[in-house]
Simulated scan of single mutants.
Amino acid sequence: MSSYLEISSEKLARLIGTPNCPALIDVRVDEDFDADPRLVPGSARRDYRTVQDWTHDVDKASAIVICQQGKKLSHGVAAWLRNAGISADVLEGGFEAWVEGGSPAVPSSALPERNAQGHTVWVTRARPKIDRIACPWLIRRFVDPHAVFLYVAPSEVEMVGERFRATPFDIDAPVRWSHRGERCTFDVMVEEFGLATAPLLRLARIVRAADTARLELAPEASGLLAASLGLSRMYADDLEQLDAGMLLYDAFYRWCRDATNETHNWPSAKKDA
Rank of each mutant, 00 (worst) to 15 (best):
residue 113 E to Q: 08
residue 55 T to P: 02
residue 92 E to V: 01
residue 71 K to F: 08
residue 203 L to I: 05
residue 225 L to F: 05
residue 121 V to I: 11
residue 72 K to I: 15
residue 241 Q to F: 03
residue 233 R to K: 11
residue 245 G to M: 08
residue 100 E to T: 05
residue 230 G to P: 01
residue 88 A to E: 10
residue 21 C to A: 14
residue 245 G to W: 10
residue 142 F to W: 14
residue 94 G to T: 06
residue 111 L to T: 04
residue 196 A to S: 13
residue 144 D to V: 06
residue 150 L to M: 15
residue 79 A to H: 15
residue 132 R to A: 12
residue 90 V to Y: 09
residue 213 A to L: 09
residue 181 G to A: 09
residue 272 D to I: 10
residue 249 Y to V: 09
residue 138 L to I: 07
residue 98 W to A: 02
residue 133 I to A: 05
residue 31 E to Y: 07
residue 259 A to E: 14
residue 55 T to G: 06
residue 56 H to M: 07
residue 171 I to D: 01
residue 179 H to A: 13
residue 35 A to K: 12
residue 265 N to K: 00
residue 152 V to L: 00
residue 247 L to V: 15
residue 195 L to G: 03
residue 250 D to N: 15
residue 194 G to C: 04
residue 112 P to C: 04
residue 266 W to D: 05
residue 124 T to V: 11
residue 118 G to K: 09
residue 259 A to Y: 13
residue 120 T to D: 08
residue 20 N to A: 12
residue 108 S to K: 12
residue 233 R to L: 13
residue 161 G to E: 03
residue 221 A to I: 01
residue 261 N to F: 02
residue 29 V to F: 10
residue 19 P to G: 07
residue 2 S to W: 01
residue 145 P to R: 15
residue 55 T to H: 14
residue 46 R to L: 07
residue 236 A to Y: 03
residue 202 R to M: 03
residue 258 D to V: 01
residue 152 V to N: 00
residue 151 Y to E: 09
residue 6 E to F: 08
residue 122 W to F: 13
residue 126 A to K: 13
residue 16 I to M: 02
residue 59 D to Y: 01
residue 180 R to K: 12
residue 18 T to I: 01
residue 148 V to Y: 04
residue 1 M to P: 14
residue 62 S to W: 02
residue 156 E to G: 00
residue 161 G to I: 06
residue 100 E to R: 14
residue 254 R to K: 12
residue 201 L to Y: 01
residue 9 S to E: 05
residue 58 V to P: 09
residue 132 R to C: 12
residue 258 D to W: 06
residue 133 I to F: 03
residue 125 R to I: 11
residue 59 D to Q: 13
residue 220 E to D: 12
residue 64 I to Q: 04
residue 164 F to P: 00
residue 1 M to F: 07
residue 95 F to K: 01
residue 218 A to F: 00
residue 128 P to Y: 11
residue 94 G to I: 07
residue 139 I to L: 15
residue 116 A to M: 02
residue 265 N to V: 00
residue 77 V to G: 07
residue 68 Q to L: 13
residue 66 I to K: 06
residue 46 R to K: 14
residue 104 P to R: 01
residue 93 G to D: 06
residue 106 V to M: 03
residue 90 V to L: 07
residue 209 A to D: 06
residue 47 D to G: 04
residue 102 G to I: 00
residue 83 N to L: 15
residue 153 A to N: 08
residue 86 I to K: 09
residue 179 H to V: 02
residue 267 P to V: 04
residue 64 I to T: 08
residue 176 R to K: 14
residue 90 V to R: 05
residue 114 R to S: 07
residue 8 S to F: 05
residue 24 L to W: 05
residue 167 T to I: 05
residue 57 D to R: 15
residue 242 L to G: 10
residue 51 V to W: 09
residue 188 V to I: 15
residue 46 R to W: 13
residue 99 V to K: 13
residue 169 F to T: 12
residue 21 C to T: 09
residue 9 S to A: 15
residue 206 I to N: 01
residue 107 P to R: 02
residue 76 G to Q: 08
residue 24 L to K: 05
residue 15 L to M: 13
residue 11 K to T: 08
residue 28 R to T: 03
residue 236 A to C: 02
residue 225 L to P: 00
residue 58 V to G: 07
residue 176 R to W: 01
residue 120 T to W: 05
residue 183 R to I: 00
residue 140 R to S: 11
residue 240 E to L: 15
residue 27 V to W: 08
